[in-house]
Simulated assay, not measured.
Amino acid sequence: MEIALLLSKEHPTLPLAEVRAVLECEGIKYYIKEKQEGLLILEIPLESPENMSGIIKRLSFTHEVFQILIEVDEEQLLGKTKEYPWDNIVKSDYAVRVKKMDKKSHFNTSKLEWEMGSIIKDNVASEIRVNLENPSTFIRTVLINGKAFVGQRMGQISKKHFFDLKPHKRPFFYPGSMSPKLARGMVNLTRIRMGETLLDPFCGTGGILIEAGIIGARVIGTDIDYKMVKGSIENLQHCGIHDYQVFQEDARKLELPSKVDAIVTDPPYGISASTRGEKSQDLYQQSMQSLQELLKEDGHMCLATPHYLDLDGVLEGTKFKIIEQHHIRMHKSLTRVISVLAKI
């Protein structure tokens, strides 16, 4: 079967990297059939659709996922819509929504939605009605580069979750906290599975721990500042995360009773109270020596660093190897680098 993913356009590489990582960790085989700006078309085995709901819930840089029913040149769209056996798809109420992904299409989206909706209604039982608010069947049409993709929505990623859990909306807030969307994306890049253990050795206000906990990971957080430890616990409890350990410790001296499956962290930058006066380069180097011993051999680490930090130098002499990187421009003088590391 073919599925389409509407990807966020806010970053050029993170959305695809996240999709790849999640499919990989969930054991879904796939083939990328087509990739255009904001749209990804995948071929996956027929036995996999039931697994997609869990995958969709994990994603952060994807807006929507739908199973492709019709793929056709735009000019043939209405003709193919009339030919399709909609009575196999639409069993009760339904809605049709059209999304233009470039300016080339001549279609008026509102008119096209009405025309397609009318065609579908003419091909199914008369008692089936349109429901624009909460339809049982949501038909998505995407127009891009002269082509039309029509499909049945499999799931939609909730914007409300990431809005409601913005750092300043949690009980404990501290400036500089990472957005929940990026935190979720970083967690996903480690390929962690439900029930596995994730460590954040610079947990701050707990944002990364929250997102990992929501997707079913067991979480461990440490911070050198007890105020952050206390605040993280408050935020985790507020978000309904119960399987956690959070305690005060220096990441450079951290020891655990057993190794973890993944490490995700956003260490402090510069010389400040958050680094206890330690230069970032020295703090990172010393921490990596400690953290490499805590990660399982097949585990991954994902960390955020400022562009001016020499990460290659930090990793020299450790078991870590950079396998992918993504650059996020924060403002004129700072680019945040998201790096995924594997043990060698």
Rank of each mutant, 00 (worst) to 15 (best):
N123V: 00
I323K: 02
H161Y: 15
Y269R: 08
P257C: 13
G313L: 10
G231I: 03
R184K: 05
E293M: 13
M301I: 09
L341A: 01
Q325P: 02
Y226Q: 14
L14D: 09
G79S: 11
V65I: 11
T275H: 03
I157M: 05
D122Y: 07
I323N: 00
E24S: 14
K147P: 01
P85V: 02
G221I: 02
L291I: 05
H168M: 14
I3W: 12
Y308H: 15
G195F: 09
E75R: 03
F172S: 05
R58H: 07
Q325M: 12
E278L: 15
Y174Q: 13
I271M: 07
V246P: 12
R129A: 04
R276S: 05
T197C: 11
F173Y: 14
L42N: 09
G27D: 07
L283P: 06
M154V: 09
A17G: 12
A95F: 05
N188K: 06
H238I: 04
Q245Y: 14
Q152H: 14
A21L: 03
Q36C: 01
E249C: 15
I44N: 02
F172W: 04
P135L: 00
E24T: 14
N108G: 08
S287Y: 06
R329P: 11
L189P: 11
D261I: 05
E316W: 13
T190A: 00
K160E: 15
H11R: 13
E133F: 11
L23M: 12
I120T: 01
D312P: 11
D200H: 11
D73Y: 08
R336Q: 05
D223R: 04
K169N: 14
K104F: 01
G38Q: 03
I119T: 01
E297A: 08
E24I: 10
G54D: 10
I233L: 10
R20W: 12
I144C: 08
I144P: 01
K33R: 08
E113K: 06
N123A: 09
G213L: 10
K82H: 11
D122V: 05
Q237Y: 11
E324N: 13
T141D: 07
L311C: 02
G207V: 12
K319G: 12
T197S: 10
Q292E: 14
M186N: 01
L256E: 04
F61A: 01
I224H: 08
F162N: 06
E293F: 13
S287K: 04
P267R: 10
G207Q: 15
S126G: 02
Q245K: 14
L78M: 05
I119K: 00
K99F: 02
E83V: 06
A212M: 10
R140Q: 15
N108Q: 07
Y244G: 05
E26Y: 12
L341E: 01
G270C: 09
R153P: 08
Q289S: 12
E10V: 14
H161P: 10
D122C: 08
L334P: 08
A125N: 05
V130E: 00
